[in-house]
Simulated assay, not measured.
Amino acid sequence: MTTEFKNQIKEKLSVYIAQKGSQNKAANSLNGISATLLSQIINGNHKTISAVMWRNIATQIKCFSKKWLCVETTDFKIISKVLADAQQHAHVFALTGDAGSGKSMSFEIYTKNNKNSYLLSCAEYWNRKEFLTQLLSTMGVDYSGFSVVEMMNEIVKKLKSQETPLIILDEADKLPDTVLYFFITLYNRLEDHCGIALCATDHLSKRINKGIKLNRKGYKEINSRIGRHFIELKGVSFIDITQICIANGIDDVKSIKSIFADSEGDLRRVKRKIQAVQNKI
């Protein structure tokens, strides 16, 4: 419950009280809310008011946060732990999870909160130079006029000068083979100094396994460097969706069950459904 949202509730509550005619009349129209409590909120004496009570009032007066509120889902906790391990100990991991499971948001939150961690959202059209350009740009390094070799040397130099750096390659399955091989080069030149995380849907694990069976160049090396193991995320659970709903002002069981049933395990769909319910309230 942020200060910004509390102020938003307070403003909406003032309008609500004015519409009802008085704090007593407003309190009588709200379940489990006293006039004293409303007075405390309006007068700014609300340090002892719980987040649950704030959400209760917000729901009843139809006040929803203008900012989407995230929660720590099961996969968020797994991802955070894996990335912290990779960064602290210069380990290399590969994570796979369904689209819409919150991977990208988890990576963004991690990099915002952890120094020397760099997130790349990969794309199919990247060639080797574009990959290095994107990485240097994310690291804040001026790469103008550099050749591919000079770019790679600059990346290695920069990362080796930092304490516990981490590279996160999101949607790594989109990278063509010629670019994916750079993972091997980065690993070889930064081994025991820089953590690396490859992240994608299960298409990445299937691609690597198929490449190994077909004896394609580089695939056995990639598999070896990730420890011959893919960390599979759990996906979105009912508990996760319940917490997201409550954080964003939806706390009745019927609506939560409906959102879960219609979510198909996709948090993007969950967000749209919650916003649709908010608009109907």
Rank of each mutant, 00 (worst) to 15 (best):
Q243F: 10
I41E: 00
S117E: 02
I281E: 03
L95Y: 00
K115Q: 11
E72D: 14
K257H: 12
S255F: 07
A27H: 02
L169S: 00
A51G: 13
F64C: 02
S34T: 13
A90I: 04
I226A: 05
R128L: 14
L186F: 08
I250D: 01
R268V: 13
Q134S: 15
F107L: 04
L198W: 08
G235W: 04
L175M: 08
I231V: 13
A26C: 03
I226S: 04
P165G: 01
N215S: 13
H229G: 12
A276R: 09
L214H: 15
M105D: 05
L38V: 03
F238D: 13
Y187F: 09
M152W: 15
S121H: 08
K271S: 09
S137Q: 09
S106K: 00
R225Q: 02
S255H: 12
K273W: 05
I239N: 15
K66E: 06
S258H: 14
L120Q: 00
K115H: 10
L13W: 05
L95V: 01
T178E: 15
A247E: 01
T111S: 06
G227E: 09
S224W: 05
I222R: 01
I33L: 07
K217A: 12
K210E: 14
A26H: 01
G97W: 02
Q134A: 13
K254M: 03
L135P: 06
K81A: 09
N28M: 12
I61S: 01
K62Y: 14
M151Q: 15
G265H: 07
E72K: 12
I184V: 09
